[in-house]
Design a binder for these strands. Structure first.
Lengths: 214, 214
DNA sequence: GAAAAAAACTAATAAGTGTTAGTTTTGTCG
DNA sequence: CGACAAAACTAACACTTATTAGTTTTTTTC
């Protein structure tokens, strides 16, 4: 008779969710059975129901926990006094670090939210849409004050979020780059894709570090 | 007794695969049953087996068909005589147009390949890895001749492919931008993220269209 | 229209699903 | 040690899964 063992940083419920997350990430939500999760812990499937309501509840907890973290960070950034590009950089860095530190949960939230049960599915989609709109609004402000290149802000948001979301395929790659270097390269590429190089920008704090040879 | 009807552009097997693709895209491979696919056509599930071997065969056909298209295009580009940035732009445009015109298949290939049966899974992963390596090699050449910004080419490949892969979440978005404009904006942002702005580049064909105020 | 082939059907299989009920073991506290 | 609660277990449920076998219907061919 094995046991579910709570740790300092988590209740027994957390242990189950963490074990499930690892499998959801690897095989997908639908392809992971309650028996798989239980076996991964070293216990029989019905024992899990002493701590959780249902399989769907696990997915809920994962997706909404991730959502809350992103929303909280965005609110902070919105309230700050930095330039638009600095705000965007902060958001991009936060996304990348989340992808590295919490990558199982973020991956699941990104890829398995379809399987959320109603009414949580509708709620999740609306929150996600709201998050993206707020990012697009931020970019639009940057375009208006000539900090940001003239691109469609919705496309830019889509591009940035997707690019970062792809980091998951990195983890399992053979040639592993260290995460700091991954972050710096990605930030550089994405911010350079946003930055307006065509005019001298008198509105924004000039933190353009690139050397220019004229 | 309904029938599976072959069309001009496809055998009955193609009809099944197309119908399956639509469901795989919507609900995922595992969550889609043979009965779902059959019902979508208007037929009973066992009838499908007159044309296909198994459910897994459908996934195989989809993933490898997409893979062949990308590989073929890459080979063409590699053999051409354009600058590195032009080659990259061609590849990016091809990916975007594939995502728009064949988006169900591309999406499935991107998201459901995990469920390929062996030995196809191993084969698929190795082909994908090879494809990415060749893109990284291309970018490295661009860095060496100062066409491309000094970024880690593996990270750049990851960023570009992921960014484009995210177009799927576009299709179901409410504010739909037309696909030509989506393509132009995305190309602009990604190529600007690659282009080396820091030195005058005497090696590459100068097709940098941006106005510079010095 | 009869014979042959193609393509649909129904029925059934064995395996796997999330989950519940009821029971036994384990750990805790006096 | 004895009592009580917590947490594990086994057995079973109703359902769904991909797939096979065998049969009937439809289409094609002469």
């Amino acid at each position: 008779m094995a046991k579910i063992i709570a740790t300092k940083n988590g209740s027994k419920k957390d242990v189950i969710i963490h074990s499930a997350a690892s499998l959801f990430k690897e095989k997908g939500y639908v392809a992971t059975s309650m028996r798989d999760i239980a076996e991964n812990i070293g216990v029989e499937a019905p024992s899990l129901y002493n701590y959780i309501e249902s399989k769907k509840e696990i997915l809920n907890e994962i997706c909404f926990k991730v959502g809350r973290l992103f929303t909280a960070h965005l609110a902070e950034v919105e309230a700050s006094a930095h330039s638009i590009l600095d705000k965007m950089e902060s958001i991009i860095r936060f996304h990348i670090s989340m992808m590295i530190e919490e990558y199982e949960n973020v991956y699941i939230s990104d890829h398995e939210w379809r399987h959320l049960p109603e009414p949580f599915l509708t709620d999740f989609k609306s929150r996600r849409s709201n998050y993206r709109s707020r990012l697009a609004t931020l970019l639009q402000k940057g375009i208006d004050n000539n900090e940001v290149n003239r691109i469609n802000p919705d496309v830019a948001v889509l591009t940035i979020l997707s690019a970062i979301g792809g980091i998951e395929s990195w983890q399992q790659s053979s040639k592993k780059i260290d995460s700091k270097s991954l972050e710096e390269n990605m930030v550089k590429m994405l911010i350079d894709g946003l930055r307006n190089n065509s005019v001298i920008n008198i509105n924004s704090a000039n933190n353009n570090k690139k050397a220019r040879v004229h």
